[in-house]
Amino acid sequence: MQPQHIIFLILGTVMVALLIWAPGMEYSIEESTLSFYRAIDELPAGSLVLVGADFDVENRAEILPQMEAILRHLMEPDRDLRIISISMWDQGPMVMDVFLRRIGDELGRTYGVDYVNLGYAPGVHTMIRLISHDFRGAFVRDFSGTPLDELPIMDEAGGILDIPMIVDFADRESGPIIYLEQVKTQNPQIKVLASINAASFPPLEPYLQSGQVDGAVVGLKGAAEYEELMGMEGLGKRGMDAQSVGQVLVMALIIAGNVVALIIARRKKGRVVG
């Protein structure tokens, strides 16, 4: 067994143990997560919300805990918000469909009336621009093949410009940025919220600081924070405990490696001088 295999074994064991044990660490809640939560809270009852499913399943470890907490917030029956979900990339709708239907059933929401999944349409920037005034510009049927005319929620939904809030679940910064470029430039009143994986967040931060993005839930920590705000116990908190300890373990190994390298270098130097 090579030394790196021992490190991998320790790392894997620690992370799996913490996922099972879940000690329940406490996290400070970031301002961006609070802004995200408040924006949904302040949305008038009965409003339409566009939910983007702009992620690939490979990033599900971060995105799914975020989706679980945020969709529960959006679909609370008292809030009476109506959801239209679309996707600029092809894998998101498969996952979004399962989540919307499961949470919708649990919370007594009706498909086609309270929420709908229109699925994927190609074109990325162009597709979003096309549905500015009418969703029928790019979508004829929903993800299950039902014509839009048979879905009551689509009767009152014109295009994206008529919707007051966009919540984008994305694993690349280009998802929310496309909504800013193609939608918010046409109607600055529309709130754009980003629920994004941690690796994609740094390029999005300038947009958050400038106020163009109105709130952001970032990575597994964001999911854990949102669960805290929702009073939930979910995969976000559990995963964040494992991730935190895993990161500290890697840092400890880096420090140890540097100390050992320094000692070896000094010994070699001593031998040369001697």
């Binding site: 991998f8 599900r60 470890a61 880096i254 490696g257 540097n258």
Partner: peptide, 25 residues
């Protein structure tokens, strides 16, 4: 599809541990 793609990304945890060990000398 999902297990295959997620497995590939999960392996990143180990690659990152190994790569950061080298990068952070």
């Amino acid at each position: 599809f999902t297990p295959l793609t997620t497995t590939m990304v999960s392996l990143l945890a180990f690659f990152i541990a190994s790569a950061s060990f080298r990068a952070f000398r």
